[in-house]
Design a protein around this nucleic acid. Structure first.
Lengths: 176, 176
DNA sequence: GCTAGACCATACGTCAGCGTATGGAGTTGT
DNA sequence: ACAACTCCATACGCTGACGTATGGTCTAGC
């Protein structure tokens, strides 16, 4: 039932899923090939080598992880409403095709042993916090600690994989 | 200047440091031996094999990570004061001999690919959150979301390795 | 149907890291 | 001094994973 001819994006998607499921050590050509029901012959057709694949994998994530959430925001809401919607969206639904909620903790894990990944994650964090800061500013909230606090809370809830992450985030939003 | 005869604890300490510095992939016998200025002959003298070492490493952490912080609390403080002291201690000083602030994110990274580690981390999380819940209860605070919120914030700040983690935590404590 | 190119399977060389075997050096007690 | 024990160095075989080489299969276009 799995498709027989693959393209590079199939390999990248399965890579994010494997990363989310089993951590960075799952990013090996032969193991991914098994997941896709093929062999590494296909892998080395679509990618020069493993570093090439990993580099494109991290860019694949980076190209989607910011827009994916922000694009869903309701532009008609006032700043405060958009802030709350953003925080609740972030801790809520994720796309399982791209690794689901476990992806980003695994990415941070990967960043521990790969400088390029660490830089990509740092860029993403900075970008998101800057966006949160703008929203807080527009909503007339404190901008010195609140944006970082909300973001750290998001990262922590994601890491802990807490059942009622949304409830906790909601309680926190009542207090900012 | 490094000591010539080693014991098992030397290997465990260097293991936590390597884990914190470079992630789980650094937990290899020969690499650790280089760090200690010896060879894997010593490693296999003190440990049966790698699984044995890793198992003892995780227990080594588990035996210290809870008591290490709680023992420093000032018992004379009222509950609310102890809660605040605990949160600020947690995001603050760490023992670099045992891996420093980067250790626990690396442990969570490791947990992604090792079931035993995942269970140990889950036990630790549950234990700490239960302790926080007791403190919140004694302080007359909400116990449904606040303990998890404070803990997730701690985990997030630790993961982000934020410069002013203490300031962010302090701001959060003003609002619980 | 045939050819060209895109895509995949398989076999192989290479290397890193595990675990073992064995001998040797250092230390302690007598 | 010697024996016994603790601890470490080194050489070796083995496995898993990377990357290459080479040939096979599928599909599009004519």
């Amino acid at each position: 039932m799995t498709k027989q001819r693959l393209n590079a994006e199939d390999w990248l998607r399965i890579g994010l899923q494997a990363l989310a499921r089993s951590g960075p050590s799952a990013l090996r050509a032969e193991a991914l090939a098994r997941d896709l029901g093929t062999t590494k012959g296909s892998f080395y057709w679509h990618f020069r080598d493993l570093p090439d694949y990993l580099e494109r994998l991290i860019r694949f994530w980076e190209d989607r992880a910011f827009e994916g959430v922000v694009a869903r925001l309701d532009g008609d809401l006032p700043p405060r409403g958009r802030l709350e919607q953003l925080c609740l969206l972030a801790v809520g639904l994720r796309d399982p095709d791209y690794g689901g909620a476990a992806l980003e903790p695994a990415l941070r894990a990967w960043a521990l042993s790969d400088k390029g990944v660490a830089e990509a994650v740092a860029r993403m964090d900075a970008r998101r916090i800057a966006y949160l800061k703008d929203l807080c500013h527009a909503a007339g909230l404190d901008t010195s600690t609140t944006p970082t606090m909300l973001y750290a809370l998001y990262v922590g809830l994601e890491t802990l994989d807490h059942d009622d992450a949304e409830g906790v985030m909601r309680a926190a939003l009542l207090r900012v």
